[in-house]
Design a protein around this nucleic acid. Structure first.
Lengths: 365, 365
DNA sequence: CCATGTTGCTCAAACGTTTGCACAAGGCCC
DNA sequence: GGGCCTTGTGCAAACGTTTGAGCAACATGG
């Protein structure tokens, strides 16, 4: 009998209860006391609302209150577990604050991202959490300037004013290179992701710096790759291994990159880790069940999402600009089998700093 | 100069152009011709709109047109790649139809699902695509009856009227059991997911039927498990292996279940596939790189999502009830190493029907 | 018995659009 | 030169809420 009926309006409830619309509104919105609605009237209104299955129209409410209760989330690929996890945490945060999430998928296309952001603005989202494609930020800067707070996650922009949440790309890359150096590697091929994006370039720079610190010239660091995909990983690793047969280790910038490299290595007749060490940025779920468990640096995806949600929440609640411009989430180094043991004939380097290591290859947790 | 400004209203544009709001509205909405707005006026209005950075307020538009342009999507866990993929395809479909997606995460909690559906209805979504927790469907039936078309994906309900898109759970389970039977297995332990859900129960029934067809009594089919999680897989497999040392094969109902079973097997001192065969429903990405590549039945997740999107699109476009009540998406059987070779001493059964097999273990694609 | 305060409610404007209808001006026909 | 169609535009209502201001009725205090 009290099945919800979306066509019942506040007016209908008011009429049924024999009061005016305004009284009905106040009675239902809890602040009955403050608005001096008698308890009996309030009860009567509520009773009729229930009976008619009244559902307030949030569109109307939003229009009137100028608060849509909507948060826009834009990611390059929802199906990618990385972004899915971020979306999840942001959604959770938004819902805690009573907001709903409008999710959009840019498909790694900057133009689409621009369109989507405009669309979300048109829907009057109160804020935007964006994992940008990373090419251009003018639309995001514009939205931010126009009063829609923007928080950027993962891929950021070197300059500009947008608060940005990222993993510690530099620290992670440095850690992996140091690991390889300790094992005696000096000629390390880099299977990079999408050049020009902040995560990629930060990792690349950190890797080069770490190598330069032990005297490896920048020209002795072969680099290839043009995307975070398996295909790019495969092609660039194949090229790298063909051009520079002297590389003893590969550093892949993503797990798909690493899987591609793994295939390329197999086809080049180099077995991992015996003939070639492999490390990668980003961990793979169930990594311990892989034939060659991958030494990796794991990003704390949930914390990335949570941090973004928090930064956004604070901006929305206080109305202030964000405290900081950059929020860096630590990564976790996990040594597994793919990096192998020390190179024969290499004197192991001493570690410069300590760091909590994780379990070894394939150990059940 | 033409930076978008969300506070600029149609009224401002009209005033700037020296026309009435209605004229401005008609000029901007393209139907200028049909509404007999002169070309010069239309241009002038557009020019001023551009200059002022006018962005129509979609909330107002939605309210007036009674079409929110919103589609609600509810899944139990966005971070799960399976649901993320579904969300992606549905999002894509919605955007093609000019709608945006409101995404909600029920966290496998039925109560939460109920709340979320209500919330989405309050926002006047035009349709709901739901991967339900699967316990109860009254709220979904109610929404559907109240005029918000509902399409159910993955977990459905045995009765009721909601159009439902699922994988061919029965066919997949049957195929895996037949595979094991061919290899000579007769005592097959079932590591099930969440009992009571349609995918689980369909798979279970099909498995039992397939076994019964070759004379294995239902009492000789050990079953354990209470969730699609790794933990449940681990615990139930451990129990199964302890209680019934005679099982020669396990059928896990999800990849997490399978990983759990793998750990349990290792701890029980049984190596896969030599001492124990293992097959599972659901494929794992990069399955060929696993130490023990898993024989599996892969769901076509994208097609699940696409089908849901299509069914919803047709319902929304035509306004008709769905053509069918059940849409079944075929699965793909993939033989890999985890099911091992024929049992020693077993006469291999002949296949009853043919089916396209996929590549063998670990083959590069 | 009048000023004052409190209680309980209604009126009406506003949020930013869309859209049916009316209306003025001009051209055309007879 | 009056009727009529066409063209271009404006008025005002509507969508379903919220909310400030106003107004009776009644109690209170002097």
């Amino acid at each position: 009998m009290s099945a919800s009926n979306l066509t019942v309006t506040l007016g209908d409830v008011a009429a049924a209860a024999g009061v005016s619309v305004s009284t009905a509104s106040r009675a239902l919105n809890g602040n009955a006391k403050a608005c001096r609605i008698s308890a009996t009237t309030a009860d009567r209104v509520r009773e009729h609302a229930r009976r008619l299955g009244f559902r307030p129209n949030l569109l109307a409410r939003s229009l009137q209150s100028r608060r849509s209760g909507l948060l826009g989330v834009v990611v390059p690929d929802v199906a990618n577990p990385f972004f899915a996890a971020i979306a999840k945490e942001v959604t959770r945060g938004a819902e805690e604050a009573g907001r709903s999430v409008l999710l959009a998928d840019s498909g790694e296309c900057n133009e689409r991202e621009v369109t989507l952001v405009a669309e979300l603005q048109a829907r009057r989202v109160e804020g935007l959490v964006v994992c940008p494609v990373g090419v251009d930020s003018t639309h995001l800067e514009a939205a931010n300037a126009a009063g829609t707070p923007v928080v950027v996650v993962d891929r950021g922009f070197r300059d500009g004013s947008l608060p940005t949440v990222t993993s510690d790309h530099r620290g992670g890359a440095e850690r992996l290179i140091e690991h390889l150096l300790e094992l005696g590697h000096r000629t390390i091929g880099i299977v990079q992701g999408r050049p020009g994006t902040l995560p990629n370039d930060d990792r690349l720079r950190a890797a080069r710096d770490a190598l330069a610190a032990v005297g490896v010239s920048i020209d002795d660091v072969p680099v290839a790759g043009n995307g975070f995909t398996e295909r790019s990983g495969y092609e660039s690793a194949a090229r790298l291994l063909a051009d520079r047969p002297d590389v003893t280790a590969l550093f892949a910038f993503s797990t798909p990159n690493a899987f591609g490299a793994l295939r390329a290595a197999a086809e080049a007749g180099r077995s991992v880790p015996n003939d070639l060490a492999l490390v990668c940025f980003d961990d793979v779920p169930h990594g311990e069940f892989l034939r060659v468990p991958l030494t990796a640096v794991a990003q704390d995806v949930r914390r990335l999402g949570q941090t973004a949600a928090e930064v956004m929440a604070e901006r929305l609640e206080t109305g202030r600009p964000p405290r900081r411009r950059r929020y860096t989430v630590p990564v976790r180094f996990i040594a597994r089998a793919s990096s192998g043991g020390p190179l024969p004939g290499a004197e192991p380097r001493s570690r410069r700093r300590s760091s909590r290591e994780s379990l070894a290859a394939g150990a059940p947790r």
